[in-house]
Design a protein around this nucleic acid. Structure first.
Lengths: 223, 223
DNA sequence: CAGAGGGATTAGATACATCTAAAATATAAA
DNA sequence: TTTATATTTTAGATGTATCTAATCCCTCTG
């Protein structure tokens, strides 16, 4: 249930409007009929608006629930990384499980222990405890950059632990400053990091969100 | 499912043999038929031996699963207390939820962060990661003590947060040394703690496990 | 040793998430 | 505009945990 709301939230943030059944089904790895029937439940509970054969959209209430889950997820990712030595790349699955089961007290204590962080290790904003909508729209990706630009990495939305580990090893994490060397027409971008050049295929560049690197980028970037 | 195994484990450790359906049902707050059908499932999976109309007993395999849950629970209680500022008295419920959902990696990292503790804040032994059976038999309780004895608190098995908080406030935690002042025939024991006298009713004394306080008691006491 | 009482089990139903197969609908193509 | 394709929904079934009501079996008492 919470998983469905989170999936809808993610899809909506990614621009889908309304969010189709098949999209939700795919991201949760269930069949389309399963997703349909969950959409019906969510509609009955007033958490989504539904247009049959079109898709769903979160209601304000549904969004609040989704934001609660997202807050749990991102707080957990941050905590597991900073206090339990989890790898930036592998923390996702653990947070995905635990996010549904922690209490409000746990959430509060974790937030306290971290000093109420506003972004997680991937650079994603953490909703505060009021659960007001956050500016969670990803900005421009590395794919969209022009040659010669200097940019700072804001968020890395990749989910594949191997890819994340690779990027981490190459020194690409939120906050890293990059220079775009070449944008090849074959779907490959070459960047310069720490004086070294690195080529990345479009599957990867599409999940690296950046902002123009002027003097100094702020932590969570709508620039 | 894990909850049932844990409940059977606890009951068995408390001396029940075999463990009756009603006992399990009561401790999990479900009806007797529900417990019966779960006992059937557990039997099919080889986790318990069952004698109809008598009760169940954990198999070796069932005990291993129960010990895994117990290990999770006690590690979590310790971690939440030491690293997240949870109160010794209120930590139980959170651990009860999370124990089912943490991964092996989480378990390992928590154990590392704590330096592989052997007892939790209540004084209960934490099974090590081999999941060999531990000596988890509670010893003598305060109820069974003679007047004038000096004893050290080994374990406090109370579940009521208010009572635990009270005992904590009175300075009674695992490791505390007590002198038994009076064992009244009305189900009341008076002890001296830190020079102050305190009377405790039998409901409470029955859940305080002690060992003789000779020179110095070891951490987990079969004395 | 026969019955009464109480705990245990069976019978039958509900709620939930999930599936496959079939029907309905929307969208894109001709 | 009509048809073909892809997506969505409906229909019907499964598995699991749970419940209530009814039946069964053990044990203790007279």
């Amino acid at each position: 249930m919470e998983d469905y709301l989170k999936a809808i939230y993610e899809a909506q943030r990614g621009g889908a409007d309304p969010v189709s059944t098949s999209r939700v089904a795919a991201s949760l790895d269930v069949t389309a009929p399963t997703a349909t029937s969950m959409m019906e439940s969510l509609e009955e509970r007033g958490l989504v608006e539904r247009e049959k054969y079109k898709g769903v959209r979160l209601t304000t209430e549904g969004e609040t629930v989704a934001l609660e889950v997202v807050r749990h997820h991102r707080l957990l990712e941050t905590y597991l990384t900073e206090h339990l030595g989890y790898d930036w790349a592998t923390v996702h699955d653990e947070a995905d499980n635990l996010e549904h089961y922690i209490s409000e007290e746990f959430e509060r204590r974790v937030a306290d222990a971290l000093g109420d962080p506003t972004v997680d290790p991937h650079g994603d904003p953490i909703p505060d405890d009021s659960l007001e909508p956050v500016d969670d729209a990803p900005g421009r990706t590395l794919e969209d950059c022009g040659e010669g630009e200097r940019v700072v990495v804001q968020r890395v939305r990749d989910r594949d632990p191997d890819e994340l580990a690779y990027l981490d090893g190459a020194g690409i994490t939120p906050g890293t400053v990059l220079r775009v060397v070449e944008v090849a027409p074959i779907g490959m971008v070459t960047v310069e990091v720490d004086g070294e050049q690195l080529s990345l295929p479009d599957g990867v560049t599409a999940s690296i969100f950046v902002a123009a690197a002027e003097e100094r980028a702020d932590a969570n970037g709508v620039a």
